[in-house]
């Protein structure tokens, strides 16, 4: 629970991205279709696509609604302002814009936020804060909206969930760093913006098996099993990668990371420590990994393995596979 030495604004500050426009050098502003601005997922997808210019600058129109007490005469706040702040962690970009009231009561505000493509590498976060002068101190944040928006410059579909970067490539013929894995069916690389999964097309028959559709019963069964096995390995790898690179507070408390690492941890921790809330579970796992806990890192591996295979759907797929296999062998006997 957070407390502040001044009165904060309670009540709902709602806001949204109303529309977006893009600009290419030397061209006029061009409207972005509303379907790329999802109010459901709260994501603006500005990734490249066929009918979109190679844009250099974007403009987002924002609108916000303040609770009545924020602008009441008798409130403890003076000079109430609403600002939208766009942050991008990879490039450490921070852009703020003040919204201005459109109605006389001052409760409805709008503003335009400009952003440059070259400032952004990954998803940027957009949040709205209400700031005011309180007790003579200027610029105090009296409310921050819960609802964050994401501005995604990579994806074309506005979706909160992100797919890992999956590519079918030849390891032997491809990039040199992949050559040493030429006998491996797939590799997982967690160093990038988002984990990358590379499936080896030089592995004879693998591409046809994993990427194919249909096929006979046996082929389908094997494909399904293979895919879940791969997913299980991927989740194990990304979990280890995420838990191995945590920021630690001075009292030893690990912080949930941002981005995919945090998402992966939040999704898998309840299966690893079902009896703890996520913060507690993360502290426990961090302690186990760094050797400050009674539970050793080794003892935790079965749990991690279980969580990964559950997420990949291994138990379900395996049951189906065994059933299918029985049916297949019966077919052979007949």
């Amino acid at each position: 629970m957070k407390v502040y030495p001044y009165r904060r604004l309670t009540g709902n500050v709602s806001w949204r991205v109303d529309s977006a426009q893009l600009k290419t050098e030397g061209e006029p502003w061009e409207d972005v279709e509303s379907k790329y601005v999802s109010t459901v997922e709260r994501v603006v997808a500005l990734g490249p696509n066929d009918d979109r210019p190679d844009w250099t600058q974007a403009r987002l129109r924002l609108s916000a609604n303040l609770p009545a007490k924020a602008v009441d005469g008798g409130s403890p706040w003076q000079d109430v302002k609403v600002v939208a702040v766009l942050t991008e962690r990879a490039t450490n970009t921070r852009t703020a814009v003040e919204l201005s009231p459109i109605a006389t009561d001052g409760r409805e505000l709008t503003g335009e936020l400009y952003l440059h493509r070259c400032d952004l590498l990954d998803r940027a976060t957009l949040a709205v804060h209400v700031v005011a002068t309180v007790g003579g101190v200027r610029g105090r944040v009296i409310a921050t909206t819960d609802a964050e928006w994401f501005v995604d410059v990579i994806e074309t579909a506005p979706s909160l969930a992100r797919e890992l970067d999956v590519k079918l490539v030849g390891f032997e013929s491809g990039a040199s760093r992949l050559r040493r894995f030429k006998d491996s069916p797939w590799v997982v690389d967690t160093t990038g913006r988002i984990p990358a999964v590379r499936v080896n097309t030089d592995f004879d028959g693998l591409e046809g098996l994993m990427g194919g559709e249909g096929g006979n019963g046996a082929e389908k069964t094997v494909r399904e099993l293979l895919l879940t096995q791969m997913c299980s390995e991927v989740w194990t790898a990304v979990f280890h990668s995420a838990v191995g690179d945590l920021e630690i507070e001075e009292d030893g408390t690990p912080l949930f990371p941002h981005g995919w690492q945090g998402e992966v941890l939040r999704a898998m921790l309840p299966d690893i420590h079902p009896d703890r809330d996520p913060e507690d579970a993360l502290r426990e796992i961090h302690a186990a990994r760094t050797g400050t806990s009674a539970t050793g890192w080794g003892e935790l591996q079965p749990r991690i393995h279980f969580a990964a295979s559950k997420r990949a759907g291994v138990p379900r797929t395996l049951s189906t596979t065994i059933r299918d296999l029985e049916r297949l062998t019966q077919g052979d006997d007949a």
Partner: peptide
């Protein structure tokens, strides 16, 4: 832009959103 196989695998490997 992606071929069918990649899309199929990637649709099983999603983070976030839930």
């Amino acid at each position: 832009r992606r071929n069918g196989g990649e899309a199929k695998i990637a649709s099983r490997l999603k983070v976030g959103g839930t």
